[in-house]
Amino acid sequence: MGLEGRKAPETGAQTPGEVKLVKLCKAGDEAAREELVHAHSGRLFRIAYHLLGDYETALDIVQDSFLRFFEGIDKIDPKRGVSAWLNRVAVNLTIDALRKKKRNGVTLTLRTETEGPGREPSEISEKERLRKDVWAAIDKLPEKYRVPLVMREIERMSSKDISKALKCNEATARWRIHRARRLFREAWKEQGESGRYLVGEEI
């Protein structure tokens, strides 16, 4: 099977600008730190949010990741990817949060913006319902497949970056993505959501 890597932007590649930014952060430059937070926080939030389905916890994970980064910045080699380092920390924190929640028996529910105590179910838009269904299907996946699936399909990260974040080799990351897609398809089918995508000229 010709599994050719999709040309996704490699977030792990360290640009000269980022090397300079890290050096400035080491020197205690607040503006550089803020720039770094602005550049990477969105990606970290989306990864955490889609894995956890919890807005507040995802925000905490973003903050904790950056705190760990700034506290240990002296030990970080600026030539190595900042993104890869942050991704790995965020993924590890997210996995910890997932395990903690499951251990405590907390049922994970995806909170949407329009959903609230005073809202009727009919008010929830179709998109939000779709998101909830998708998340429910993702939640059925084992942890080792869920993480690469979200990183690849939602965050559009390259296999190389995923392998760095998961601390495994690239072939393993690709295999997990492949397997995760199949498992997600089966979970999605179980939920009765199928046939939305019509076969057109693509085949």
């Binding site: 779709l130 998708v134 199928s194 046939g195 019509l198 076969v199």
Partner: peptide, 15 residues
């Protein structure tokens, strides 16, 4: 294939 593409499409659009 339709089902596979539908699932993937839903996943991506949810993100």
């Amino acid at each position: 294939f339709r089902k596979a593409a539908g699932a993937l499409d839903a996943l991506r659009s949810a993100g």
